[in-house]
Design a protein around this nucleic acid. Structure first.
Lengths: 337, 337
DNA sequence: ATTGGCACTCTAGATAATCGAGTGCCAGGG
DNA sequence: CCCTGGCACTCGATTATCTAGAGTGCCAAT
């Protein structure tokens, strides 16, 4: 169907278009890449490529630009993930190495990815779902009020105030704390939820009302509140290149947590490096955008995802390289801490 | 110098320009506002206003637009803070009321402010500096590693891993924890730092190396790391209206924590509602922007600031009303929790 | 299959012409 | 003294027209 040269032409068109932002013609093409044929030949090839839907002309008598389908072919078969340069690797290491807590890791990762790719970076906080309870803490705030702090082994901290029906003594708090930690320490959150449900039976009668209040809030934290948090950065990079349609649409989409979640969730195997191109992406207003995403986590379990978002006309090999490399480093850091 | 009618003219120009984005001429002005004079009279007034620097013409034979100086006069003497509507107040209450922890409060506040004003909202996390220690927690992570968690009474949580020189027993941890809480509970962070410095002397000899490690990290958290965290949202609103110069510049500025901090820090009395207009604002790239900011906090102490940022051509009374109202509500919520 | 040649098609950019909102100024009237 | 209607003038925005050039498709020749 498509011989080697036609594929080479497609690749050349994409590379040129990505770097110049301008429709590329047959003449320019033979000049810039050393194809040993004449422009006329290329024109024939381009006619075929266009017929098959890999490229298109904005209008008659303009050069060609790749279609979503063209980019798809390019990503799947014509390109390789571009490894980062030595300098870039070092930059990642030093930049991410200085992080001191989870918040900081995520924030830095976003900035790093945005800077590396000159696109918008999206990073999801490690999921509570898969992580394990590391510690539960109760802190008295007032006579009938305590602060419940849940620390997970991915470094995420959940905190919630609890209003109690009765006043509570320090002893009761200590008792409750000990009980909670004894039961939950080290367990995955999912298991912990089950354990918590059975716990009221093991409380002294006097502690039961207060204990129940704490436990119900704890249960909420464990089960209901699985809203995953997502942050993004690098919006300024969007303004630099001009998004053909509405940059506003893109910004709006980015500011909707729900949309971001969907964006990251859509890809198939969460562990793999995934590329969604243009209209493949179901989100309204992001039809001119592509997303390169992958899962990351400590060891081989996927805790969350991170991604780079840019115009369909983006440097896929570079973005893929950056995403993959950053995901690995972040994974390492999470595993260490 | 400027009689009442001239001031009325200035006000009218600003109101019209803000709502239409277009230079406003004498004819339009008398039509839209019921000034009982002829266009010619207005023209004379405008000539004076222009001479004094309150308005300017983009080019000869175009209408007038307000200058920074004009807006300044407007804000200082011609406008009143616009109270929010009943519906808006209710919206704030319900939206902010549902927040469950500090992170959530801040996130919601940003969204709320952005939505209310249709501009960019900037919110600073409550400062660690002024808040008090509510609880210090040590959680064993490994034989020679603990997690240090510092909880403040503004609900902010700092957490850091600490590598110890020697392995540590649960007893030692408990001891250290008790000691820390005994000394620090309820104290302002600034005081606490002093106390921590004296603490090593009160440790058993056997605990001293490990204790010192923990304390030094704690001290860092208390003193060094006063990087205040700032978040923003509503960037999509920037793309809607078109910023005359570079929207890119603005976005870049917003993504720099340092710049944001400077922006919030600049205003004089932190508790007051402050407006900085255009070039008054020292940050490069924000010369076409205005910032309406105020402090907020529980009770009367100012814990942090929040602000709205938009083009100099913005609805100042509305923005001021929203900022003031939101700051109050957030303060209430912080005081409650 | 590849190529050079050629006629054809558009768009981007330049140039010119026109329109009209808005101004400044002046002389007359309360 | 302040306000007003009248009038000539300015200058940006809009529209129309033209041109140059990049790029195409097709065909006949190699």
């Amino acid at each position: 169907m498509l011989d080697d040269r036609k594929l080479a032409v497609l690749r050349a068109i994409i590379e040129d278009y990505v770097s110049t932002t301008e429709p590329v013609g047959s003449k320019t093409l033979v000049d810039r890449h050393n194809l040993d044929v004449s422009p006329a030949t290329i024109r024939n090839d381009m006619a075929v490529l266009e017929e098959q839907g890999y490229i298109a002309q904005p209008h008659t008598s303009a050069g060609r630009i790749p279609t979503d389908k063209g980019y798809r072919l390019f990503v799947d078969r014509l390109s390789a993930v571009k490894p980062l340069s030595q300098a870039e690797r070092r930059a990642i290491e030093t930049f991410l190495g200085g992080a001191y807590d989870l918040d900081d890791v995520v924030t830095r990762t976003v900035r790093l990815l945005a800077q590396l790719t000159r696109q918008v970076a999206v990073v999801q906080y490690p999921s509570l779902r898969i992580s394990c309870v590391r510690h539960v803490e109760l802190v008295p705030l007032g006579p009938a009020r305590v602060l419940l702090v849940l620390i997970t082994d991915t470094g995420r901290v959940e905190q919630r105030g609890v209003d109690l029906p009765d006043s509570i003594s320090d002893d009761s708090i200590a008792h409750l704390r000990a009980l909670l930690n004894a039961c939950m320490d080290g367990r995955p959150l999912a298991d912990a939820a089950g354990v918590v449900a059975e716990l009221p039976a093991r409380l002294d009668a006097s502690d039961r009302p207060n204990g129940a209040a704490v436990l119900s809030v704890l249960l909420e934290s464990l089960v209901e509140r699985h809203e995953e948090k997502v942050v993004f950065g690098g919006a300024a990079n969007l303004a630099a290149r001009d998004f053909s349609k509405g940059l506003q649409d893109v910004l709006e989409a980015l500011e909707e947590q729900v949309v971001l979640m969907r964006l990251l969730g859509e890809s198939g195997d969460p562990a793999l490096l995934t590329v969604r191109i243009g209209a493949e992406n179901a989100v309204e207003g992001l039809h001119d955008a592509s997303i390169v995403s992958t899962g990351y986590g400590a060891g081989d379990q996927v805790l969350a995802k991170l991604a780079v978002l840019g115009p369909t006309r983006m440097d896929y090999p570079g973005a893929m390289g950056a995403v993959r490399a950053v995901a690995r480093y972040v994974g390492q850091i999470l595993a260490e801490s």
